[in-house]
Amino acid sequence: MTQNKRILVFRFSALGDVAMTIPVLWSFSRHYSDYEIWFVSRPFAKDLVEPIPNIRFFPIDLKDRHNGLRGLFRLFRELKKSGGFEAVVDLHGVLRTHILTLLFRLSGVKTAQINKGRKEKEALTRKNNKIFKPLPSTVSRYQATFQKAGFVFEMVSFPGKKLYDSEQLISNNASDNRTKEIAALFTGSEKDLTIGIAPFARHQWKMWPLDKMWDLISRLDNGNNQIILFGGRGEEQNKLEEWAAQLKKGTTFAGQLSLGEELRLMAKLDVMISMDSANMHLASLAGTRVVSIWGATHPYAGFYGIGQELEDAVQTDLECRPCSVFGNKPCHRGDFACMMRITPQLILKKVTNKIVSPQ
């Protein structure tokens, strides 16, 4: 890269939150093509940022090298040693990034930190005197943080399917068995829909009960629908493999693909069914329509998938919703009505209420 001007951007986790930085970084790169972006995050984020022009990924090791206060000072020295930055943009806003941002500010670098809107979110989710209104999206909060640092730009259309191109993933000339298996899903006989399903979330109050999900999957497993199940390693992988084995046209690659490969696979879907989870954000990045299922959380908190239509968010109207920003608080009512009242028929109607053309 030949750029002389550089900025430093922090966003360490979680996967969904990191995914929401990508459209903002893309838009910045379109408007400020003479800048190099140093993006500091956990190693998994490398596949997400790779397609963005003028970006350099710097992996952070919070378990060892960059752990604790001493590790943060080491990270600061490593970044300083690499050369000068015109600005530091903190999109995370946690103690670690507060310390790093302070160190750079004391060394004379312009800094900006995200306003997470904690008071607004508390008002939206509290049990009594709830203020129920849409809050700024996380993407817009990221954009506003760049603006604080002096970088004003409009968001531009994010070309997800072009950036996360699936052709290499499904090439018929592939040599390894796994890639051949993926390619076979998109060749041969005519299909109705290729449907991705991601039934898991980090917190249980964001998860639709698995018996209801299996009911839905069984209903979708008909005709020429192709079902691909998404999830992580361990228990999630075991459950998805168990389900896939019972389907006529179902499969899962859980625990087998890199994040970049998963994005490329998602780009080939006609629709993804997911929770309010990282998979909703990944499928959105890949340019795929998502029918998302919401329980304790709500799109109004600002974490909806970029480019998705609000009518594709499946949720029940209850006065207690939302009761949590992240889905990590137990149900106020004790009956988990927000999820229990969502039926497989309701999801099925959402999936099929539009004519979805294969990509």
Rank of each mutant, 00 (worst) to 15 (best):
Y164F: 14
A183W: 03
T194F: 09
E236Q: 14
L185T: 01
I227L: 15
A174L: 01
P159M: 10
Q237Y: 00
W208Y: 07
G232V: 10
L169G: 07
S189R: 08
I195R: 06
L220K: 02
N222V: 11
F230S: 04
L193V: 07
D211T: 11
Q226C: 08
K191C: 06
R178Q: 12
E167C: 10
D165V: 12
T187E: 04
P209Q: 06
S157M: 03
E235M: 04
H203P: 01
F186E: 04
Q168D: 13
H203T: 08
L185A: 02
I228T: 09
N172T: 12
M207W: 00
W214Y: 07
A184P: 00
E190C: 02
F151I: 06
E167G: 12
S218I: 03
E235C: 00
A184D: 04
D215W: 10
K206N: 13
G223Q: 13
F200A: 01
G188D: 09
E154R: 08
F158E: 03
R178C: 08
N225Y: 06
H203A: 12
G231C: 05
L229F: 06
I217C: 00
T179D: 10
H203C: 01
L216R: 04
V152N: 12
K212N: 12
G196S: 03
S218V: 01
M155K: 15
Q204G: 01
E236F: 03
F200K: 00
W205I: 01
T179R: 15
I195L: 05
S175Y: 02
L229H: 14
D211R: 05
M155E: 14
K148S: 04
W205Y: 02
W214E: 14
D176T: 15
L210E: 08
M207G: 01
I170Y: 04
R233T: 14
Q168H: 14
D192Y: 00
P209N: 07
V152H: 11
S171R: 03
I182E: 08
M207S: 09
A174E: 07
R178V: 08
A201F: 04
F186Q: 13
W208S: 03
F151G: 07
E167H: 11
E236G: 10
V152F: 04
W205P: 00
P199C: 05
K212D: 12
I170P: 04
K212F: 11
G188Y: 06
F230Q: 03
V156H: 06
D215M: 09
I227G: 05
G234V: 09
A184R: 04
E167N: 14
T187M: 02
V152K: 10
V156K: 10
M213N: 08
N172I: 11
L163M: 15
S171V: 02
M213H: 11
K206Y: 00
F151K: 08
I170D: 07
D192H: 07
Q226E: 04
G188V: 01
N173P: 00
R178M: 13
S218R: 14
D221L: 13
M213F: 08
I228C: 11
K212C: 13
Y164C: 10
Q237R: 02
I195T: 03
G223R: 11
A201H: 03
Q168N: 15
Y164E: 11
D165C: 13
A201S: 15
K191T: 13
G160Y: 12
E190H: 02
F151H: 06
G188F: 01
N172F: 02
E235N: 04
R178S: 05
N172P: 12
I217F: 00
N177R: 14
I182S: 08
L220Y: 06
W205E: 06
A174T: 15
V156E: 15
F186A: 11
I197R: 02
